[in-house]
Amino acid sequence: MIDAAAISLGRIGAMVLRYTYLLRSSWPRILEMVYWPAVQMLTWGFLQTYLVRAQGVAPNSAAIAAGTLIGAVLLWDILLRGQQGFSFSFLEEMWSRNIANLLMSPLRPAEFVVALMVMSLIRLAVGVVPVTLMAIEFFGFNLWALGFAFAAFFVVLIVFAWSVGLLVSGILLRYGLGAENLAWSLMFIIQPLGCIFYPVAALPGWLQPICWVLPPTYVFEGLRGVLIDHVLHTDLMLTGLAIDSLLFMGAAFAFAWLLASARRAGTLLQTGE
């Protein structure tokens, strides 16, 4: 159990300070955070513009189609970069062989996790916010104009991103850097199954129940509902959030179990490959 009274904002702040120092010390890191989301958004945006023009779609339908795709790309980036912001901050400790220093300091695992969540938000702010502004400039799509719907989408996506980040961090603690590729690749399973670019109905019937277990599916279905039908399906958002909560608790349990297992196996001092 986590003793909330024992959680120290000072220690969480220390970890955020550590990651902020790291980001400030390396402009390529900051550039990389903006670069990929921008490339992704521009590629898909121009492709969508070309297809709409080539098929002679009515302007209003074209705008909706473009919004659906670019909106999906931006929300996908929130999901992917949210998880990577969490996982990469954790990986920094393993790359710099600093993890033992932290685990033998007064820093509690829960504080470490909260600091990684904060860093995930900071990295999102640096990497994805500029790209949402570029989407307005290049394609006239304003994600922020979705208002409350965007806030709901963001919450469901970021909690899921943290759950995946937490699970990956636990696996890294237990099995070392040999599992590093999970931090880069695990989230990509969501691209086909989370129905980012197409509705759930487009998938074979046997696959659809699996999609509905994943909170991002509710967000991307919700996005299409907002942009095409102009309706925010709150039932979808609430269901997505409920599944999110369960998955986050499961991930937290898995992280705690993997950390305890690493202590028993004595692998925390041998976190290399």
């Binding site: 300070l17 790291l22 820093l107 001092l269």
Partner: peptide
């Protein structure tokens, strides 16, 4: 321990400041 490092990219002062805050 010589077998545990501190973050290489942070300056000595930054590293010590982070650990000072961790230890309150």
């Amino acid at each position: 321990s010589p077998y545990v490092d501190m973050p290489h990219r942070l300056t000595v002062r930054q590293n010590l400041r982070v650990f000072a805050q961790l230890y309150g």
